[in-house]
Design a protein around this nucleic acid. Sequence first.
DNA 1: TTCCAAAATGAACGTGGGTTCATCTTAGCA
DNA 2: TGCTAAGATGAACCCACGTTCATTTTGGAA
Lengths: 197, 197
Amino acid sequence: MRSDAARNRRRILAAARELVAEQGADVAMDDIARAAGTAVGTLYRHFPTRAALVAAAVDVGAGELAALAEAALARTVAQRPETDRSDAERCETGGTVDPTAELMRLLTTIADRHVADRALKQAASDLGGSTEHSSEIERAGVAIAILLGRAQESGGIRSDVSVEDLAVLLAGAPGTDVPASRRARWIEVILDGIRAR
Amino acid sequence: MRSDAARNRRRILAAARELVAEQGADVAMDDIARAAGTAVGTLYRHFPTRAALVAAAVDVGAGELAALAEAALARTVAQRPETDRSDAERCETGGTVDPTAELMRLLTTIADRHVADRALKQAASDLGGSTEHSSEIERAGVAIAILLGRAQESGGIRSDVSVEDLAVLLAGAPGTDVPASRRARWIEVILDGIRAR
DNA sequence: TTCCAAAATGAACGTGGGTTCATCTTAGCA
DNA sequence: TGCTAAGATGAACCCACGTTCATTTTGGAA
């Protein structure tokens, strides 16, 4: 692939990522082209159709989602009932190792980002969909599943919720149209709902 | 108004109501006209623009929502700590008078209908929006507010949730794309989240 | 039955947006 | 420095959809 082609591909994907975040999946090709600084035809050299380009942009968001989830997972450790290493682990990871708190923090972060990033919201929704996932979505799903499992083992989260349940809940997160105070109430209710009693 | 005009208006509104329920707010005017058995021009005699027609269709859904809420409210009574008339009232209303159970039943019903009726979902979302409401939306809001107040007085629902909070929660209800079992999990989590602890 | 204003009709217009392709440009190799 | 295939360009095409309006139809009063 020629260097200018690679550069244009990066620019197009970045522009699409940004516009899909702002405006959702129904961005116009002309707008993406203008934001990328190329002509429309160039978009079609790199992506066969508008839907493919949007899907690629959403996939970038899915990658960020996966990174977020993997970072949260890295901050926790698997349950080890036989040896209590929590203090040492707490020190070496520099943060909490409580998987429940970490999961809740992750869900809050994701919900917060949904407000300004409709691409991320779409990515999270795809986690709950029945269609086959992209590899990035899969990565996110795996990380969240492990974190969720640890939180459930430790008794912090009700045992009957699945990753898909979380995805469905997150898909219903409010957007920019509702004020921040009400969004805060929303995440509070959701977190209370999945907490073990 | 001539009789044929009134008949067409009814047919158009009914068709719009149905199509908006099925396909959401972005129905084509041609489709509504075909379903109503009229020509496109007739739509414009009764409604100035597509948006106005869709709004009217959503308002029909809002009326149904209000009826649902008022029926639920009618099944409960205000708290009367001084005289215990619960048995008599239970008999005369033919059902429970527990406002918390009634509110939860109402929310479940609304969420269930959202699945097959995107007009209703839009109507419920409007309850949480900052734009001024139609009179039907107002009716629904008032009925739900009273019911919610009673449920909170009786200690069944956390005191810090508002009608707008409920609307935002309901606006995130899953659609036909998620299976019924997962939808059931969703409403379960939501109800647990607003329950007083 | 006559008549006319209200109502209905649907072809036509404008617009916006996805897609194509003939033409021009350029990266990179010899 | 030529040369060429890969890449970029953007005007043009097509189609879907909202809206309009000249023409035709018709409810219902006189």
